[in-house]
Design a protein around this nucleic acid. Structure first.
Lengths: 224, 224
DNA sequence: CCGGCCTGTAACCGATTTATAACCGGGTCG
DNA sequence: CGACCCGGTTATAAATCGGTTACAGGCCGG
């Protein structure tokens, strides 16, 4: 599990990196905003920790840029008097925040919670009922049928639904989880993606048994 | 999603309640500490917002009492120069704090983050008497009957009535909660919506047993 | 360079949902 | 009585939603 950390306070940066690596994470360090963006591209981390006050590009700017292209979980770090930027970050799609000073223990707990919520805690096969999703090689197996290959987006959709198997997941949450914060008017994208996924996993795509619609609310996965 | 708000400043209380209800939350208001505790018991909110300075029982006391029996997320409100108070609050188990004055936008962002963090972003079914409202997938179940699907507006109406089950809710409050502010000529909309909802949930829509009219005042839900 | 898949975008359809208006009947009050 | 106000009902128009088909650009491997 790879975590990108960006903070211009070297001491704090090292402390966080140490804490995380002790907990089994692979820490990637950046000392300013532009470095953070470069490293984000090249390393493809599973989670990002951003300080708001940074030279180069502010954490706020970095958050916005990352969110425009990825749905990776983002945690913001903020001093007590940076309320306004914090709120802007949250509205732009940051997932959580921590106010300085904080204890390493707290940081760790929050990061784990964030990963759990994003359904990224275990990279192994994710199964529920008769649906077995193999995240590694992008395949699903339903019942005794042959495994089907999924695209990146289909995988993310099915992953989110499978984590909440049996319960309805709102369209907004799906949009954020799959694409990050693009313009929210993109119901079209979700419509398409659901349609394409149904073609692959439903016996009769016109009468969905597995990926069902909750009209006006979202979609849900029916296992067994 | 039900939120209990406790503040002895009536104006602020109303402002917060209005902000939250516009955002789709159900606001339950308390003007002092003991009222807050009573309402906490009876309403079972998903989140609590507490002012520290209150007559009756202080925010501390309330926070402590609630925490002794529940893990519900708690957000404290504090005046700017009461740093010690907020430290004490956090030690007592509050999850976050906000210093006055704050903007509604900030409050909303923080509350959303808090709910996300607590993994409570989707509240379980909201039930009272024989009525069980499943907010997630827009359905109600009454008694042993089959679940009925509701539209967005019907859901909001029933939600508001269910929170105030047994009590009459004024037409104005319903209008504001469901549509947000509109020109007041819109009694027609409410009339329609009530009618459609009755068709769905009443055994005999012409003799309403559940969604009853309080002539000249509003509507109320009879749950027994 | 070609042909495949993956993704985003648009357009169309039918169904549902929401807004607007008109009509009905009871009750109130001058 | 008759002019209202109120709530219920019916009817109809407008907007939105979800499913579907079609197509274009990007990307990648042959």
């Amino acid at each position: 599990m790879k975590v990108l950390i960006a903070d211009d306070d070297r001491d704090l940066l090292e402390l966080i990196a140490f804490t995380l690596s002790q907990a089994g994470f692979l820490a990637v360090k950046a000392v300013d905003g532009s470095a953070a963006l470069t490293l984000f591209e090249s390393e493809g981390p599973d989670l990002v920790v951003l300080d708001i006050n940074m030279p180069g590009a502010s954490g706020f700017k970095v958050c916005e840029t990352i969110r425009a292209q990825s749905a990776v979980p983002i945690m913001m770090l903020t001093a007590r008097n940076e309320e306004e930027d914090l709120v802007r970050s949250l509205e732009l799609g940051a997932d959580d925040y921590l106010t300085k000073p904080f204890s390493p223990r707290t940081l760790l707990a929050r990061i784990k919670a964030l990963l759990r919520r994003a359904g990224m805690e275990n990279s192994g096969p994710l199964a529920s009922g008769r649906i077995k999703l193999n995240v590694e090689d992008h395949t699903v197996q339903i019942g005794a049928a042959a495994a089907v290959r999924l695209t990146k987006l289909e995988l993310r959709l099915l992953q989110m639904l499978l984590v909440n198997a049996g319960r309805t997941v709102g369209s907004d949450r799906l949009l954020v989880h799959i694409w990050g914060h693009r313009n929210s008017g993109d119901r079209q994208l979700l419509k398409q993606l659901v349609h394409r996924l149904r073609q692959k996993i439903e016996q009769d795509p016109s009468l969905p048994q597995i990926l069902q619609t909750a009209t006006g609310a979202g979609y849900k996965l029916v296992v067994e």
